[in-house]
Design a binder for these strands. Structure first.
Lengths: 140, 140
DNA sequence: TATTGTTATACTCTATAACTATA
DNA sequence: TATAGTTATAGAGTATAACAATA
């Protein structure tokens, strides 16, 4: 008989949030690996899709990514020809999806939306609104 | 007037879970910095407190930490004299809180518990049970 | 003076392969 | 043959300081 193990933090809301978030992120990573994208890259692509001509600094503020960490990510997306930079003035560039990038992001967006819907559909219907309300409070 | 920014993923449950989990973890990190501990170290200490003489491999399975990553963490906790290893047989050691470690962990445990209670108390009472139920489903 | 963007650097967490020693 | 533990290594996320160029 196996020794009993105690998990003293099993009921900590923070711990359970982290487990749930990790599970969601892992599933998303798997989905995105078919597009050869990481989660951070996919979020950035969705942001550019929704906000054409946005600045790198706007992405950083919206997604809470520090500017020094954004530079290499955008360089990769530019190298893989999903995104291009269009000079606005001497120091800033508007970011756009390329002709290759736009349809790929559209397809990826649809799959991400379906995946996120599945997360919520794991819950019985009567828990969905309360769960969203709770997350709204805890995430703000 | 500032340009309008669209956040196409603002309603993704996975994204909001990650935000909420991140906020909880940041607060916990801040609390633990007063003990000069990181979150992973604190979890391990709670586990040893609840399961004296546990093995490193048991910690790894319970907390989902790969064995190679556990070795340096436990070495640090041993160096800072919070934990000691007691040989069980030729290949495994039972882990214990030291005389210094036990009271410190007890104090830290109480503060962590209070912090986690505060997270739930941010929610209006009628959302707490549904939120816990939902997390139970999504984290499993 | 504040903002945009870059480089360099470092720390944490996570992941895998290869290994020793023991049961 | 399976398990406990270690070492080395690498990827990804995150953080800060210092800097150049521009508004």
């Amino acid at each position: 008989m196996r020794r009993t193990i105690d998990l003293p933090f099993a009921d900590f809301p923070g711990y359970r949030l982290k487990l749930a978030a990790g599970k969601a992120t892992n599933g998303l990573s798997k989905l995105l690996s078919e597009f050869d994208l990481r989660v951070s890259e996919a979020m950035i692509l969705l942001f550019i899709e929704a906000n054409p001509a946005c600045l790198q600094s706007e992405i950083g503020r919206a997604l809470n990514i520090a500017n020094p960490n954004l530079t290499p990510i955008l360089s990769r997306l530019e190298t893989s020809e999903l995104v291009f930079r269009q000079p606005i003035d001497g120091r800033s560039n508007g970011l756009h999806l390329s002709r290759n990038g736009a349809p790929l992001v559209k397809k990826m967006h649809a799959q991400m939306q379906a995946y996120e819907n599945q997360i919520l559909e794991q819950l019985p219907p009567h828990l969905r609104d309360p769960f969203n309300e709770a997350l709204e409070i805890l995430a703000s």
